[in-house]
């Protein structure tokens, strides 16, 4: 059917090659992450800037008319408040673990970054806008997002500066299965994690501000 492989019988050349190369050559055990940040590292840089420019677009479209304000909100249920305090902490640990061990076990920068951003959203839902808005401040988030997007390029340029091809691994390969096994691909992994986390918090922040603003306006 239209050149598609029979289901369950894929014999594509690239996957098999990457499976053979990832551990002996690149010293990483998670081949999906090795594909994302090492074999296809240049594409992922483009992908990061898709996210970066989309966030810029959303911020520009929704800009203006949203003065920061503190609403009185009291979540009355103690249970919800306790979950709201403990839940995000657990999700943050999960997110950091997903990024840190991205080259060893399932996970990676994108997955962990989304989990980290999700933690602040849980805070908004359970504790309320005032507690959340401290994390939704663009004066803090914008530099963090730029650090993630720019950091990826800086790691690439550092390889150029040391006489290697763009994005080549400059730190050398670690022991397979260890937390630093990715070498400088691990830095790219962290840059993507930071970028994705900050980008998603900014997106949520923009829409939450829109959601909060009309209510306050209507009350006047």
């Amino acid at each position: 059917m239209a050149g598609l492989p029979h289901f369950g019988h894929y014999r594509g050349p690239y996957g098999v090659v990457l499976d053979r190369l990832a551990v002996p050559e690149r010293h990483v055990e998670n081949v999906v992450n090795a594909t994302t940040y090492d074999f296809r590292g240049f594409d992922t840089m483009g992908e990061e800037f898709i996210l970066f420019s989309a966030v810029t677009g959303v911020v520009l479209l929704l800009r203006g008319g949203k003065p920061r304000r503190h609403r009185e909100e009291i979540v009355r249920s103690d249970l919800v408040r306790v979950i709201g305090g403990v839940g995000p902490a657990l999700v943050v640990v999960l997110g950091l673990w997903l990024v840190a061990f991205g080259f060893v076990t399932p996970g990676g920068g994108f997955q962990g970054g989304v989990a980290l951003a999700g933690a602040t959203t849980v805070l908004f839902v359970t504790v309320g806008y005032t507690a959340w808005s401290r994390f939704g401040d663009e004066r803090i988030l914008d530099p963090i997002e730029s650090l993630g997007a720019g950091g990826y390029v800086v790691v690439g340029l550092a390889a150029l500066a040391s006489g290697l091809p763009f994005l080549a691994n400059i730190l050398g390969f670690g022991t397979p299965g260890s937390i630093r096994s990715g070498g400088s691909a691990d830095l790219l992994n962290w840059a993507a994690g930071i970028e994705v986390a900050a980008a998603n918090v900014i997106l949520v922040a923009e829409f939450v501000e829109e959601y909060i603003a009309p209510k306050v306006r209507a009350r006047r």
Partner: peptide, 27 residues
């Protein structure tokens, strides 16, 4: 396609399409 507990050479599902799905989700 994760060789944490299995030796290299074990048959796995294709890692390339999984990385592409990740890109797909971000887009």
């Amino acid at each position: 396609p994760i060789f944490d507990a299995v030796p290299v050479g074990t048959r796995t599902v294709d890692p390339v399409v999984q990385a592409l799905s990740l890109t797909d989700i971000v887009v």
